[in-house]
Design a protein around this nucleic acid. Sequence first.
DNA 1: GTAGGGGTTCCACCAACGGGAAGGTCAAGA
DNA 2: TCTTGACCTTCCCGTTGGTGGAACCCCTAC
Lengths: 130, 130
Amino acid sequence: MNIGEIATRSGLPAKTIRYYEEIGLIKPLRDTNGYRAFRQQDLHKLTFLGRARALGFSIEDCRNLLALYEDQNRSSADVKSIARDHLAKIEQKIADLVDMQSTLTHLISACAGDNRPDCPILNSLDVQSL
Amino acid sequence: MNIGEIATRSGLPAKTIRYYEEIGLIKPLRDTNGYRAFRQQDLHKLTFLGRARALGFSIEDCRNLLALYEDQNRSSADVKSIARDHLAKIEQKIADLVDMQSTLTHLISACAGDNRPDCPILNSLDVQSL
DNA sequence: GTAGGGGTTCCACCAACGGGAAGGTCAAGA
DNA sequence: TCTTGACCTTCCCGTTGGTGGAACCCCTAC
């Protein structure tokens, strides 16, 4: 498989696949003409990576998950631990965003949004509002 | 005011303040020795920026908000529009994260987390699971 | 032979800073 | 007066996870 084909099959852009090779996540073979030659296992890995990234796992998380994925003697506890750490980060982000959402929603509803210069949103950002 | 003092007062790191000058958000004066000389209005702007950033507004949003903040003839509709766009982005991010949270929570609860190699989390990332 | 649609490398860029080096400045104390 | 230490300056590199583009090679079809 050339990079174009595996890009289509895995759903990842060719640029991303080259980048994943560069950082050592995959190690495709090379044809005599210098083209990357992907095997079925590379497609598996890339699909795996695409899904893990879609779940928000960092590249380093993915590296660890991939190592576990390939380790027949892994324990599921190791995987669960990474997933739990990641879940905690996600929940923290959600909490932060919900805070912002709440504040913004209040400010927006308080703002007339007309042609007048008075604006509760700017007022609240101004030092004077303290 | 030197940068150390305004950093303390605004709550922003000195590095961040220098960066904000570099990208043109603030324009402090200079003393003869080359030190930045901040005025009260710079403190106002930096405080404003700190709060807007804490609400997740991008630097470009901040630039626009700051221009409106300084424009006595602004209309509150312009501010409200920026805030609404930003709120929409936040809500999209929350939705994405909640999706991830939901999937991860299911996977984690399905995973025994013991010493055995079988792991529903990895299985779900594997291409085989389709 | 040439046109096109692959592929390759390398370099630069994005957000929003943070770390650290190398050096100038200032105020206080011995 | 000298020195110490805290402060300031600029400059450059690193971060995360790629994306865009330039310049160039390769392969197939017409």
